[in-house]
Design a protein around this nucleic acid. Structure first.
Lengths: 114, 114
DNA sequence: GCATTATATACGAATATCTGTATATTCATA
DNA sequence: TATGAATATACAGATATTCGTATATAATGC
């Protein structure tokens, strides 16, 4: 595959590569939220939230809708949640693997010493 | 969801957030590859490849298997490919949206001027 | 018009990541 | 044990990201 495509995809993953932005996307699972609502639920300060939202906008992960003075954000493509679910699955698999490894190490040390 | 979890997940996405690393993972779709093979197909220099592989190892995305002096790498969890496929889908959707937008802009300008 | 509320942007310092180059390690083999 | 091949690590300069703070914009009600 093309190097340029990988460049674009890397930008996409960079947009996801921050805890605050993942938290924002998680909040948006239940539908659109205003900046103020996001600010309250993540308890971060306002410019921080706006900056992360700008980053998410830059990669077209979210879209903004203005109503008077408040801006509502929503994810642009619900497939993003699908992506986050697969990521969660990978995460859980890793945890299971490590637990199995720990169990195995415990057993080996028991049979060596006992 | 917990801030610590988001921290871990962000680390995971950071591991994906580089064109060279995406290219490596793409190569590993067809099975394990040695460092030399990866180096050849991505045509990057050897320390670069090893460093990116180290980053992928750090997030447990790949596993290494040594055979004599060569190291073979493989993805640890095939769900990673599932993740990359979903990312590709999101990408394609974005492209479709932009094309539709362009078409719409063209039509509007035609009906205004013609 | 003025104050207020909600959100966005600017900017610099701190920190993290990347890139290239040099060097180290590990293994096989003569 | 000296050599070469394959891979890994160290490190420094360049670049990018983050974080906090200050300021700007935009809409609303008085």
């Amino acid at each position: 595959m093309n190097q340029l495509i990988h460049q674009f995809k890397a930008e996409f993953f960079k947009a996801l590569a921050h805890p605050a932005r993942l938290a924002i996307l998680e909040q948006l699972r239940s539908g659109e939220k205003s900046v103020g609502e996001l600010q309250a639920s993540l308890n971060a300060d306002q410019p921080t939230i706006s900056q992360h939202l700008a980053r998410l906008r830059r990669s077209d992960l979210v879209q903004a809708r203005k109503e008077g003075t408040t801006t509502y954000y929503a994810v642009r493509d619900p497939a993003i949640f699908e992506l986050m679910d697969v990521a969660k699955k990978i995460f859980n698999n890793q945890l299971v693997d490590r637990q199995a490894l720990l169990r195995q190490l415990r057993n080996e040390s028991r049979s060596r010493t006992g």
